[in-house]
Write a protein that binds this DNA or RNA. Structure first.
Length: 547
DNA sequence: ATAGGGTTAG
């Protein structure tokens, strides 16, 4: 009805001077969403306060398209006495952030506000600040803040989260200090941002003080507790996080709270605790994904299978990220055919799905299959581009299986077809492949190429070069590689062992003995290798997921 | 008008 005719008019007027015409994608959004829009049933309010509450309720309900449509029609009927005011614009700014419409639209709204004088109040300016902050325009946001005459705590908080959003925790601390100087009374929003700054700067003592302020607030707030859990786990204090988690009695723990606790436990390798927390939670895709990472790292196939079952039961198998974690879990536990069947079941494979599958084959010694998956990835219809991690997986797979030609081809593709700059890690894998194939001159020409490209060799590159020299009896250049390696990492036991193996390979046992005595005087010992096995009946977590 | 959680490499 009204909405459909508006859509038609929007289309007709694209070439004329309506402000929205500068944002054709917005018109696309409007066109696509009209069928579901609640607006089709609504009559137009006849005064601005009614219009404002209607717009605000659309935004609250998460229907920014209807809000923007109503706003647009308001502007087109500018001859009537219903004119947008500061309240209208603040809702509209929020709606445009929800739609993630680019800064261009927001700037146009800002211009309209300037024209009508609706930009002068603190609330309007805060809404503008927030809009620019969400568009990533840090300069514009701070400019709006500087123009404010009266800054209340909400305005300060908006500035604070602006810096945090741009990953500038040091500046965020500056804002906090300034708030202290200006005697601004901190709110729970402030404390939340403060905790986030402490988490990203790993400022344990400061965070504990903020925790004190949270306690002083005297209310159990789930958002603040989540921030506390996240803070404590990111500084490595899982027990403090668990204390916060379990002591939260007065309010409902939501998914975010559980997810934060589960992933925090997994990050700190506290798998038992992670599963205990999982026992309380109604399964959600994110918590299961975090827990699967724990299973991969712990090689706990049993728990991983349980989580797979829960994911199937709850219909989470359409979640690409969860399936990626599942695929990786099976691969790391050595169940390649299971990994493949998960991979095949992913409807929308992303670059991580492909990389995990390539890596799964590679680490299992099935280089040919890895190369084949890589070829499929680059073929028809696949819109997914390999990234530098993908190439590293392919190169490493070729190295493990001695696929020299495939490795060379892959290294060529990386630069020539995909325009990527090889990292030192790529060179290390490549040098390893060439060295194992016995092409010592190609090894050194790859090294020189790397230097010419301006890539500085890392310890990993010297390790690969040294191995190649040991295998190919390249005495002189091997000593050079050994020298560089020991200069970069003189106290790493495995490096000294490697150098000593090189001398053994070229029959210089006097040097081997000297290196062993150096290790003894430095008190170094090569870390023992280890592997995990699961014995039935042991090592099993009693997870009771409420499935 | 402002706040909290997830996946890939040797």
């Amino acid at each position: 009805m009204f909405v459909r005719s508006l859509t038609a008019k929007l289309k007709q007027k694209t070439s004329k001077t309506s402000n929205l015409n500068h944002v054709p994608f917005l018109i696309d959004i409007l066109n696509h969403s009209f069928t579901n829009s609640s607006l089709s049933h609504v009559h137009f309010p006849s005064d601005i306060s009614q219009t404002n509450s209607l717009i605000a309720s659309y935004v609250r309900r998460g229907d920014p398209v209807s809000a923007l449509t109503l706003f647009h029609s308001l502007r087109r009927r500018a001859h009537s006495d219903v004119v947008a005011d500061a309240y209208t614009f603040t809702s509209i700014l929020r709606a445009s952030s929800l739609l993630r419409v680019s800064g261009q639209f927001g700037t146009q709204v800002h211009a309209q506000m300037l024209k009508t004088g609706a930009d002068s109040g603190t609330v309007a300016k805060t809404a503008l600040l927030d809009m620019y902050s969400k568009c990533g325009s840090l300069d514009e946001a701070t400019k709006v803040f500087d123009e404010m005459r009266h800054r209340d705590v909400v305005a300060w908080n908006a500035l604070l989260s602006c810096f945090l959003r741009c990953d500038r925790p040091v500046e965020a601390f500056g804002v906090l200090r300034e708030m202290g100087r200006e005697n601004v009374e901190l709110s729970e929003f402030t404390l939340c941002s403060a905790l986030k700054s402490c988490a990203s700067l790993k400022a344990l003592e400061l965070g504990r003080q903020v925790h004190g302020l949270v306690v002083c607030m005297g209310r159990d707030l789930v958002v603040l507790s989540t921030a506390l859990v996240d803070f404590y786990t990111s500084v490595g204090c899982v027990d403090d996080a668990l204390k916060v988690f379990y002591s939260l009695k007065g309010c409902w723990k939501d998914d975010m709270m559980y997810n934060s606790m589960v992933s925090g436990c997994v990050r700190s390798r506290r798998y038992d605790e992670a599963f205990r927390v999982m026992g309380f939670v109604r399964p959600n895709a994110i918590a299961l994904t975090s827990a699967l990472v724990g299973c991969s790292e712990n090689l706990d196939l049993w728990a991983g299978k349980q989580i797979h079952c829960v994911a199937v039961r709850w219909g989470f198998t359409f979640d690409t990220q969860l399936c990626n974690a599942l695929l990786d879990m099976y691969a790391k536990c050595g169940r390649i055919s299971q990994a493949l069947s998960v991979f095949d079941g992913i409807c929308e494979k992303d670059v991580i799905s492909w990389t995990c599958m390539i890596d799964a084959y590679g680490r299992n010694g099935q280089g040919r299959e890895a190369v084949e998956v890589f070829r499929e990835m680059r073929e028809v219809g696949s819109k997914v581009l390999p990234n530098s991690v993908t190439f590293l997986s392919v190169l490493s797979a070729c190295g493990h299986s001695g696929l020299v030609e495939e490795g060379k081809n892959c290294f060529k593709l990386l630069r020539e077809k995909y325009g990527l700059q090889p990292d030192p890690e790529h060179y290390a894998c490549y040098i390893d492949i060439l060295g194992r194939a016995g092409n010592i001159e190609e090894v050194w020409s790859a090294y020189h190429n790397m230097v010419v490209q301006g890539t500085r060799p890392t310890a990993g590159v010297w390790v690969a070069l040294l191995n190649a020299c040991s295998l190919n009896q390249d005495v002189e250049r091997g000593e050079l590689a050994a020298k560089h390696l020991l200069q970069l990492e003189p106290n790493k036991a495995s490096n000294i062992v490697l150098v000593s193996n090189f001398y053994a390979a070229i029959d210089r046992w006097d040097c081997v003995e000297e290196l062993r005595s150096i290790m003894r005087t430095k008190g170094l010992a090569k870390e023992a290798g280890n592997s995990w096995i699961n014995v039935p009946g042991f090592n099993r977590h009693a997870i009771s997921l409420s499935a």
